[in-house]
Write a protein that binds this DNA or RNA. Structure first.
Lengths: 153, 153
DNA sequence: AGGCTTATTGACATTGAATAACAATTTCTT
DNA sequence: AAGAAATTGTTATTCAATGTCAATAAGCCT
């Protein structure tokens, strides 16, 4: 448990998850998870693999690819967007949910949250009789710098 | 021009677009566009290719892959989601913008629109000084049938 | 603690969507 | 009608993601 707020760590959550599924806790899985949760950055398989290698650690890409669906099932990470032929992920456990405002030109990303989305979810729940699990709101636009560039050209 | 509402057709829009870009209008492009806009369904490259062939027409997949970015640039279609290793698209011109509520289990899709998203966009525009171009709101949940199934198991 | 079952690993091969290369063809301007 | 240049289909290529499989190791049971 985390001493400050009594909230179990990602690793603890995941070990619990593995036990429930009759799966095993391995050093490789630990390495990958620790790397993922060491920052609050988005990641893709390739960048994750590289940063693990740069720390002098060693896991195969196959193990990363095999772990990702488990982390998603355990509600620790989620897909955020698909770009340049690769899926990108971010971790969600322990972080406020947020949406993404992305610049179409320079690819920069701003994070935001808005409680109106939760209201929309409630309405959908009633209207369609769904059990809402999550949402993904992606707003695409031009940042102020890229607006200037396109105006001057 | 469409006789009823005076609105140019997708083909006209696209020919205009091609001319602006110094590009050429070809029978292959016409075939693909007509097929895309003959229904209001979502599509992916493979299903599109098949339905064109089923009509006895013939274009290469390469031409489809080459056309899609142009249609996106011309604001006629957009990516909706990536699933099963394939990008899925829908056409947007001449249709009210809508968002998607998707069942995680059975993959069924409900379409909805909510004006609160436009309000969120306005706020983002001001707050981040972005020029907002579009958004993609995907809500994922369990439809009523799939809820029943998961309860009984 | 040691043994046994079976999940997991890494290496390698494979799949398949998407892109690139290129010669043959076709559009479109003049 | 001719010529420059874009587009086509074919073929080859890329590369993310998945499958295969023998070797290894986790974790339960006694």
């Amino acid at each position: 448990m985390d001493a400050r707020n009594n909230k179990p760590s990602e690793l603890e959550i995941f070990r619990e998850f593995l036990k429930r599924q009759g799966m095993r806790y391995t050093p490789e899985r630990e390495t990958i998870i620790k790397e993922i949760f060491s920052t609050h950055e988005h990641f893709d398989v390739d960048s994750l693999y590289i940063s693990i290698r740069q720390k002098g650690l060693r896991v195969s890409k196959a193990s990363i690819y095999r772990l990702i669906p488990l982390l998603i099932k355990a509600n620790l990470i989620e897909e955020v967007f698909f770009e340049n032929g690769q899926m990108h992920y971010e971790h969600i456990y322990g972080h406020e949910h947020h949406c993404h405002l992305r610049c179409q030109e320079c690819k920069r990303i701003e994070e935001f949250s808005d409680k109106r989305v939760a209201q929309i979810e409630e309405d959908l729940q009633r209207r369609f009789n769904y059990k809402i699990l999550r949402h993904k709101l992606e707003v695409i636009g031009l940042c102020s710098e890229c607006q200037k560039k396109s105006n001057s050209s």
